[in-house]
Design a binder for these strands. Structure first.
Lengths: 200, 200
DNA sequence: ATCCTCATGTAACACGTTACATGATTAC
DNA sequence: GTAATCATGTAACGTGTTACATGAGGAT
């Protein structure tokens, strides 16, 4: 990402958020987390470096703001050039080599599940399912709110994917627990241990 | 991740892969990509740093190997301590603050879809759906293979999630295209442009 | 013949994560 | 009245990404 000369994706994420209005670094970081945080995170310190760079490029303009009760801050607003650059990036079928990457400690553990205590693994998956179900409730709230706002069609669209993926995850977890319980742990159930022909 | 003194998740990913047998850095990097690459990527150069660190800790043991036609290499194998540490990490309900993070340029663009050309956005989503469908076929192949191997239950389990998520993505994309087409672009269809009351 | 890929790895730099700092509120 | 949180940001360090190097083998 940022294959020489070009800006990385995060730069455009920042420009995009600033397209809604001026923000301080702190506010931008918070907004990023709440809005696009589910599919694009920006490290707090990266936000400041990014803003500095974008200011150098003339894509944003920063002005210092004194505050009485709160720490002073610097507000950044999008320039016309910044907006153009953002729009061009958006409409330019970007060289998306990377596409969509995921990172999950949980799945890593499942993958090496043969080295886990069977019950421990099952517990972990059950917990994951419960978390997914909680997340589902949150998604429903958000979807409800966004549905009312006709200006939020695109956010709504991304949130819908979040919901679908979360549903899929919960269903998978349920199935996984069932299918993994069925072949192990003759404990705590009235089933007798049969000869389980496993190698190694 | 790696909150002082403790090892980061990637270290355990490396130990996990070495639990199947000795590997060179290069081979480990390749294996990582093919096996756990869908939910845990390891940068090529990180692999070598990681192996060096793990060797320092006594979790792996490396030996130089001379080769005739190919570049010399260093093979690493898991020590008993390494295996213990891995197993402990696996069974220790890890402080998963991070959980599961995703990173998608595509969704970022959808989120800022109001600044895209409607047709451009739709094309992008259609492409995404097509890619998901291709991925589905690949998943089916993999699932088919893994199903036959009784030793691959855990890999199979993770692959099943991949399939479900990919299905969900494809379905979402279809719905998104429909719902986003329905409210814009009076072009290329026999529909007359009606007054579309959009603000600003 | 030339170019691409494999197999091996190193080096430079960009990005992410954690910890640190500080004064004002809010919580208990 | 101490502790957590907010609002602002900086600094240090670990991780990821890109580019570079190199000789053999396969492709065209």
């Amino acid at each position: 990402m940022a294959p020489r000369g070009e800006l990385p994706t995060t730069s455009f994420a920042v420009l995009g958020l600033l397209s809604y209005g001026p923000l301080s670094g702190y506010a931008l970081a918070s907004l990023a987390e709440q809005s696009i945080g589910n599919f694009w995170t920006i490290a707090k310190s990266q936000v400041y470096r990014e803003l500095a760079r974008l200011e150098e490029l003339g894509y944003v303009e920063g002005t210092d703001v004194r505050q009485e009760k709160l720490p002073d801050k610097r507000m950044y607003e999008l320039t016309n050039e910044g907006r153009s650059s953002l729009i061009e990036w958006l409409n330019n079928p970007s060289p998306d080599k990377e596409g969509t990457r995921m990172r999950s400690t949980f799945l890593l553990k499942v993958f090496f599940g043969n080295l886990m205590e069977p019950e421990q693994l099952l517990d972990m998956i059950r917990t994951h399912r419960d978390q997914a179900e909680q997340a589902l409730e949150r998604f429903d709230l958000i979807l409800d709110q966004l549905s009312r706002d006709p200006g939020a069609v695109y956010m709504l669209t991304t949130a819908k994917l979040g919901k679908r993926v979360t549903e899929a995850t919960a269903e998978w977890a349920d199935e996984a627990v069932k299918s993994l319980s069925r072949r192990r742990t003759p404990s705590k159930r009235r089933s007798q241990p049969r000869k389980s022909g496993r190698k190694r």
